[in-house]
Design a protein around this nucleic acid. Structure first.
Lengths: 214, 214
DNA sequence: CCAAAAAATGAATATTAATTCAAATTTTAT
DNA sequence: ATAAAATTTGAATTAATATTCATTTTTTGG
């Protein structure tokens, strides 16, 4: 019995490692990298500090491992979502659905990716973070008002909730500019300005064929 | 002469303060909050460390001031962009345009908001950051392939470059899920799944009226 | 059951960097 | 020109916490 693949000791070690990573993830998600001490991680994972160094040679390595593992796991789940379907429209639907599932089931991990991020940056303190987040929300509100009034006047067709439209335009703009910032050669800038709005303005699928979806 | 608004001393102090903030911004943008020491900031701004504490009572306050100022400045520029136009479509066009300008002219500041963010988190080291960024790019590539093939097969209309479409879907999904994560009550989750794709699939403006734009 | 080997422990050490403050310098007023 | 006041300086202090390693505990094989 117990031939489950790895020698008992190895298996035990792997389990411990996972426990350690889980504890660390939870703490990092809550308080951010720099606000979590090795002693805290030791306490939460029920190891002694010294033992942590059996698994990772430094706090930084522990953190990097955590992040890279997560990124790879999420990435491969999304990839599977695309491969699971034949038709392009279904692929996209599946992508969004799986993305949502990942989000639901990994909320705290996602926070580690995003809470500190998303314009708010790492957790100096909650008050400050929410202050910045309020500015962001207020920006979304102004944009939302434009969509709402456009819809009301019949200038726009209501293809989605105004808030979602605002979030969409804001995030597309930011993401594409960021990509340009990262690789100005690969992703040219000026053309995008017009293209970005086309994503909202124009229909990706032929409206006359749209019924095929439902 | 020299009646430029504030007493000489006050004016001088304000100028110094701005110089200090500029130096700090540059350093933070390059290396991230926790990797910049007060001594570095002092050196770059050509003050002594002690003097920094004349302006801000702590490193944290210095940083917060920087971020809040930036956020407010960007926010009000974007707000003006909306208010400057009468028509909703022009408002949106102006928003995207001004957003791009802010990006161009504040690349390093934006990095402070985004580089550490955007899934990559704060700068432990460049190698690690780019490792995570590669995973992100690869995710975009998979999604891009779906759009490209959909367009090629005639399943999709080419309303924008496949890369931009991929970036758009990815960022809308993430942003809207994040909003839900932040305020589950205000922004319900499940409905969005379908709505998100509508942003791409459907046209916000009546195609028969589209010519009015050009 | 026993002793050698392996693993775990956490108090002590080392490091890094934020903050302070007595001394030096500059500015202002007479 | 002089001295009081204000400002600036940066070496020394303090604080926080990552890492080490001598000691203790647990496991293993005979």
């Amino acid at each position: 019995m117990e031939t489950d693949s790895l020698p008992r000791r190895e298996r035990e070690k792997a389990r411990q490692r996972r426990e350690l990573l889980d504890a660390a993830l939870e703490l990092f998600s809550e308080k951010g990298y720099h606000h979590v001490s090795m002693n805290e991680i030791a306490q939460k994972s029920e190891f002694a500090v010294g033992t942590l160094y059996k698994f990772f040679k430094s706090k930084e390595e522990l953190y990097k491992t955590l992040m890279t593992d997560l990124a790879n796991r999420f990435h491969s789940e999304l990839l599977e979502a695309l491969e699971a379907k034949e038709d392009e429209i279904e692929k996209l639907q599946n992508w969004v659905r799986v993305g949502g599932e990942i989000f639901r089931t990994n909320a705290s991990a996602i926070r580690l990716f995003l809470t500190e991020a998303q314009g708010a940056k790492f957790n100096l303190d909650a008050k400050f973070n929410s202050e910045l987040f309020e500015i962001h929300k207020s920006k979304i509100e102004s944009l939302k008002a434009v969509f709402a009034s456009g819809i009301q006047k019949g200038r726009f067709i209501k293809i989605a909730d105004p808030t979602l439209l605002a979030v969409a335009l804001d995030s597309i703009t930011r993401a594409s500019l960021f990509l340009w910032l990262d690789s100005p050669d690969q992703y040219p800038y000026p053309e995008n300005t017009e293209e970005i709005l086309n994503i909202l303005f124009k229909a990706l699928i032929d409206p006359t064929a749209a019924f095929r979806l439902f």
